[in-house]
Amino acid sequence: MKNKEESYHAFEILYWCGIHIGEPLALTVEDFDFEKKTLRINKSYQHIKGKDVITTPKTRKSNRVLTLPDFLSDEMQDYISRLPYLKVDDRIFTITKSGLHHEIDRGCRETGVKRIRIHDLRHSHVSMLIEMGFSAVDIANRVGHESVKVTYRYAHMFPNKDLMIAKKLNISRNGEKDEQEEPGSERTFEK
């Protein structure tokens, strides 16, 4: 994807932020705060009856501010700095949803990678956050799920904590040191 810079950066935002397809297509320069390394999501791009339309996001919770990883903040700042014609309220990504679909088709064809839906990049982001150990509440807040119940659709992916619970109970009962605790933070419990 890197040989088409606009679509590459749109896919970077989609994957690393876990946002809906219309949200990056509505982004303007004003949505980025590179000092705080944040991205404001407060609108979505639609193409309705031949016209570009900017709408509110899908749900109330979809209005949010995301903290960007350093590398993505740097990439986007560099990319935007190389768009001299861009006005503050212009869309950064002028590609359309169908253009992104074409680009994912092209990228998959060229690499031999199985094609996924663009929305599946959002699912991949959620799956990655689960694997990293973040809670359903934290993930729901980041991706703008209206309810944590939506995030629990991924419940099968959340790690089983039963073994960890048993280990902690052993430590509690036997006064053993938790191997994951910092040195000097030993805790013992009296009966």
Rank of each mutant, 00 (worst) to 15 (best):
N63C: 14
R64D: 13
R64N: 14
V65M: 07
L66A: 05
T67V: 14
L68I: 00
P69D: 13
D70H: 12
F71Y: 14
F71L: 04
L72K: 02
S73V: 01
D74F: 03
E75N: 12
M76C: 10
M76I: 08
Q77P: 00
D78G: 04
S81E: 00
S81K: 04
R82M: 01
R82F: 02
L83K: 15
Y85D: 12
Y85V: 05
Y85T: 07
V88C: 02
D89A: 00
D90S: 02
D90M: 07
R91H: 05
R91F: 02
R91M: 07
I92K: 05
F93A: 01
I95A: 08
I95C: 11
G99R: 03
G99F: 07
G99Q: 01
L100P: 08
L100E: 01
H101M: 08
H101P: 00
H101N: 10
H101D: 15
H102D: 12
H102S: 14
I104C: 04
D105F: 08
G107N: 11
G107A: 15
G107E: 13
C108I: 02
R109I: 07
T111P: 04
K114D: 13
I116D: 05
R117S: 15
I118G: 05
I118Y: 02
D120L: 11
L121S: 06
L121W: 02
H123T: 14
H123K: 15
S124H: 13
H125D: 05
H125I: 01
H125N: 09
V126I: 15
M128Y: 10
M128F: 12
L129N: 05
L129P: 02
L129K: 13
I130Q: 14
E131L: 05
E131W: 03
E131A: 14
G133L: 08
D138C: 03
A140C: 11
A140Q: 11
A140W: 12
N141R: 14
R142W: 04
V143K: 03
E146K: 08
V148A: 10
K149R: 06
T151K: 06
Y152N: 05
R153L: 04
R153S: 09
Y154A: 09
Y154M: 06
A155V: 00
A155W: 00
H156K: 10
H156A: 07
M157W: 01
P159F: 06
N160Y: 03
N160T: 03
K161R: 15
D162P: 02
D162L: 14
D162E: 13
L163F: 04
L163A: 11
L163W: 04
M164G: 07
I165R: 12
I165C: 04
A166E: 10
K167P: 01
N170K: 11
I171C: 01
I171A: 00
S172N: 03
R173N: 06
R173H: 04
R173L: 04
E176K: 07
E176Q: 09
K177A: 12
D178Q: 00
D178V: 03
Q180H: 11
Q180N: 15
E182S: 15
E182D: 15
E182G: 09
P183V: 08
P183W: 07
G184L: 03
S185N: 11
S185T: 09
